[in-house]
Amino acid sequence: MRRTWRWFGPHDKVSLADAMQAGAEGIVSALHHVPPGLPWTLEDIRERQSQIEDGSNGALAWDVVESLPVSEAIKTKSPDWDAHIAAYRASIEALAASGIETICYNFMPVLDWTRTELRAPLPSGGTAMRFDLATFAAFDIHILARPGANEAYVPEIVQAAADVMAGMDDGTKAALSQAVVSGLPGAAEHWTLEDVRAAVQTYAALSPDVLRQIHVDFLSEVVPLAERLGVRLCCHPDDPPFSLLGLPRTMSTLEDYEAVLGAVDSPAFGATFCTGSLGARSDNDCVAMARALAPRIHFVHLRNVIRDSEGAPCSFMESEHLCGDVDMVGVIDVILTEEARRRAEGRADAEIPMRPDHGQDILTDIGAGAQPGYPAVGRLKGMAELRGVMAALSRRPA
């Protein structure tokens, strides 16, 4: 696997030098300042490429786009659909012209990944991101005050949410709201509670089946172009992989992926296989899923979680990369086997880019102010652990 590292641009407190020292071979980045629905220009793309190359003395290149965002207008098939599809196609063309061949995106309505605490304390003294179901229900029922939210949770969680809410002061409530609607650094979109309420209402009439069909319709517009240009689109799973705020989810399980991959059967469309996102459901066997999806996996996120309970939805904590509910060694074994199969076939995409996804804040990460989930030392530790697994598995007798 090709070792990559997510970098959010010049404002990122984790530098390109840090990425090189951690063992990265390539960079994963995006133009977060460009609002969804507008095209990425050659000028902007090449500026980011130059920043990466200059900042690493030519040692690193922009290998993977994460993410080229799909606008809410596309996801809801609003009147702006045609214009936003045209912009997305223009962005693919500009990226292809710049030599970037792997584009990750997601199809999650309204919110990207969702956590209730961005720096939850660990017994070690470090911190990590956490999703607590009762706390999220407190946000949904009492802060967002979504109509019908009470009926979305079992009685035990409704009561637990009320208990959580009773113990919150105004500062804690504000911090929870910020955590839930937190965006990526430099992102052009910034959600308020009113924005979220309006967006949730927009999706009220969309079932998972309808959203899945819209996803397929979107892919039908962009995948033929990607195939012609030699570009690979890969969809990130829902994070967490279950419904929140009553919003439809369509990329949470193996069945979800198989439905969309089957509907758009092209080598230019595949999966971003994220073990941390998928692993937050106890009924997702990540090793079996990786094996089933292997020929269509274009990008890999290696991250682990510890679930508080079985079933979905559930609470979970982001754990060390090799200490969680996901069989990380088993997943890496499947990916390495797939790479060997591709090499034997002569596939141009035999080497699959991976990155250590997220990381716990440890040592000098604490107080450094990096983007939650993206510290320097925590990810370096994850990269080192994953490299060790890869090296050991690669040296087994054939």
Rank of each mutant, 00 (worst) to 15 (best):
R2E: 10
R2I: 13
R3F: 11
R3A: 14
T4G: 02
T4L: 00
P10S: 10
D12C: 06
D18K: 15
A22L: 01
A24I: 00
G26L: 01
V34I: 15
L42S: 15
R46C: 03
R48H: 06
G55P: 09
S56F: 06
N57K: 13
D63A: 08
V65T: 02
E72I: 11
I74A: 06
S78A: 12
P79C: 01
Y88K: 06
S91L: 00
E93H: 07
A94M: 13
E101K: 15
Y105I: 12
P109K: 04
P109Y: 07
L111T: 02
W113K: 11
T114W: 13
R115F: 15
E117N: 13
L118I: 06
P123N: 02
T127G: 08
M129P: 00
M129H: 01
R130P: 05
F131R: 03
D132F: 00
L133Y: 02
T135D: 08
F136M: 01
F136R: 00
F136I: 00
A138I: 03
F139Q: 05
F139R: 08
F139M: 11
I141C: 06
P147V: 10
V154R: 14
P155Q: 08
P155W: 04
I157S: 00
I157K: 02
A161M: 01
D163L: 13
G167R: 10
D169G: 15
G171Q: 12
L176H: 10
Q178D: 09
A179M: 01
V180K: 13
V181M: 15
S182R: 13
G186C: 08
H190K: 09
L193N: 09
E194Q: 15
R197N: 04
R197P: 05
V200G: 08
V200Q: 04
T202R: 15
V210C: 06
Q213S: 05
Q213E: 11
H215G: 14
D217F: 04
L219C: 08
E227P: 05
G230M: 06
C235H: 09
D239Q: 09
L244A: 01
L254Y: 05
E255G: 09
Y257Q: 09
A259M: 00
V260E: 12
L261G: 04
G262M: 01
G262W: 05
D265F: 02
G270C: 03
A271W: 07
A271G: 04
F273C: 09
F273T: 01
G276P: 11
S277W: 11
G279E: 11
R281A: 11
R281D: 12
S282P: 14
L293A: 04
I297D: 01
N304M: 08
A312Q: 13
M317V: 09
E320L: 11
H321R: 14
H321S: 07
D327C: 15
I332F: 10
V334I: 10
L336M: 12
R342A: 12
A344Y: 06
A348V: 14
D349Y: 10
D349M: 11
A350I: 07
A350F: 13
P353W: 12
P356F: 03
P356C: 02
H358A: 04
L363K: 13
D365M: 06
A376I: 05
M383S: 02
A384C: 06
A384P: 03
V389L: 14
R396I: 06
A398M: 01
A398F: 00
